[in-house]
Amino acid sequence: MLLNFQEFKTAAEQVEKIILLPKNADLKMALINSSIGIDKTKKREFYQHMNSLFLNIILNRLDELGTQAEEKAMDARKIIISLINTP
């Protein structure tokens, strides 16, 4: 099921927030909290979109996001995969 425009925007906002979190922040909790308000049937799509956005951060190597951004995006992607694959 495809997300609607607002949900795509929410995913992008959540990704930005997560990247700006401090280094020792609980990434898993932040990712779980990011999907609050998203319908259960759309959670997978929502996380998949976040996963793609995190990948773009890695591929773009955006300097303005700081040196930790790439590492955090990679960790976030691993957590997303475990969240998606956990029933």
Binding site: L2, N4, F5, F8, H49, S52, L53, L55, N56, L59
Partner: peptide
């Protein structure tokens, strides 16, 4: 890499057919 860029740019247009 291009496929990922296309995907993220298409999500901003929110065209379901193109997005699929």
């Amino acid at each position: 890499k291009l496929a990922y860029y296309n995907y993220t740019s298409e999500t901003e247009k929110a065209n379901p057919e193109k997005l699929q």
